Computed example of a mutant assay.
Amino acid sequence: MEHEITVAPGVRLWAEERGDPRAPALLLVMGANASGLTWPEALLDALARRHRVVRYDHRDTGRSTWSFDEDPYPLTALAADAVRVLDALGIDRAHMVGMSLGGTLTQLLLLDHPERVATATLVGTTPLDGGPADGPGIAPELLALWETMLEPRDRDAELAWRVRHWRVLNGGESPFDAEEFRRREERIMAHAGRHENPAAHARADQGGLDRAGELAAVTTPVLVVDSPADPVAGTASARHLATLLGNARLVTVPGLGHALPEAIAPRLAEVILDHTTTPGGG
């Protein structure tokens, strides 16, 4: 079932839910500049066997309103959007799974709206303090690619750029199926009705994110997924994040990078469901 949800004046978000509407709700919060269709279908189907699963497009992605150039917003607005999605769907409390920036937003929700979060799962997520000072940092190849993010490209060139981007994000420990990600990005372009990437979230104000000192007070059960091949937020970042949180455990998914191929879906679904369906969140 699809929905169109108003979250602010002139701003509407596309959302979709699947699974038993009577089951415990689970909200998927995707990363920066990424449509909700970025989540692997196999992962959604596996989670929907136990949950009412909701995914949505952030502002300036997919079928949601694209308005950043006319009306810029801070990244913290995306956390408020997640709460408004729950409100619109009549969900008082949900398990939340955040990927990358989605995990950053989920950290904010743990601090500001703990009553809305049953459990949290953080995947490929940088801590609110940016990560350990002695960590490896973001891979240079990825930083070089990001420097070209805002360059104008036609549809074919944009598609090729996105597939190359996913190849780098995948890391070097698991096979990369370029055709799988090409097909996924073609679906995302068709879903959005456009191919441009405004990189709105890369340009948005990051004020209000430096709140790592508050994470120790979090009592909500949190699962931090260690993605050892991740060129953005690898093992050092995951371990650091787990130590900052007041009620967290760490699970490693071997071979996982910062991309979510269909092949990783069964193992990722297993660790998420173990967390969301175990009393006390594991």
Rank of each mutant, 00 (worst) to 15 (best):
A259C: 06
R18A: 14
P261N: 09
A32R: 13
G246M: 06
T219D: 13
P136K: 12
T219S: 15
V117T: 13
R153C: 11
R167I: 01
A229S: 13
D129Q: 06
A79C: 04
A190S: 09
E179W: 04
R164M: 06
R63M: 12
A200D: 03
P261R: 03
A199W: 14
W161T: 02
A80R: 14
G124T: 05
T276C: 12
L241V: 02
G131H: 10
G207R: 09
H58G: 04
E141Y: 09
M96L: 15
T148D: 07
I91V: 15
G172R: 13
R182K: 14
L159F: 12
H95Q: 08
A79N: 01
Q206G: 15
A265N: 02
G103R: 08
A160C: 03
V163E: 04
V251G: 06
A263D: 02
L122D: 04
W14T: 06
E70W: 03
R22F: 01
T235L: 05
E262H: 06
A80I: 00
A157Q: 14
L47I: 13
P140C: 15
P24F: 11
V253T: 11
E186G: 12
V218Y: 13
V117G: 05
G130L: 09
S227D: 11
L108P: 06
S67W: 00
A212W: 14
A204Q: 07
V168F: 06
E141H: 08
A80Y: 02
E185M: 09
S100R: 06
D274S: 11
N170W: 10
T148E: 01
L101K: 01
P140Y: 11
G193K: 11
E17F: 08
Q107R: 11
Y56I: 09
T121C: 13
V224Q: 08
V222K: 02
V97H: 07
L142A: 09
H201D: 06
A202I: 01
A199Y: 11
Y73D: 00
L78E: 00
E173Q: 15
A144N: 02
W39G: 02
L122Q: 02
F68Y: 15
P175M: 08
R12A: 14
R184E: 08
E41T: 09
H191Q: 00
T220M: 06
P132M: 07
G171M: 08
A248E: 03
D69G: 10
R50M: 00
A133H: 12
M189W: 01
R194Q: 13
G135M: 11
L209F: 15
H113E: 11
G213Q: 10
G281M: 09
R183F: 07
R22S: 15
W166L: 15
V11R: 13
I138N: 05
L159P: 07
D177K: 03
H58D: 07
R164V: 01
D87P: 00
P74T: 11
V225E: 13
A23Y: 09
V253Y: 09
P266I: 05
E173S: 15
L26C: 13
M99D: 01
G213L: 12
E158H: 03
G124R: 10
L108T: 03
V83I: 04
H195N: 08
R55W: 05
L27A: 08
W66Y: 10
T220R: 10
P175H: 08
A25F: 10
L122E: 01
G31W: 00
A46E: 05
G281W: 14
R194G: 12
A82I: 01
R18Q: 14
T126E: 05
W39F: 12
T148R: 14
L110G: 04
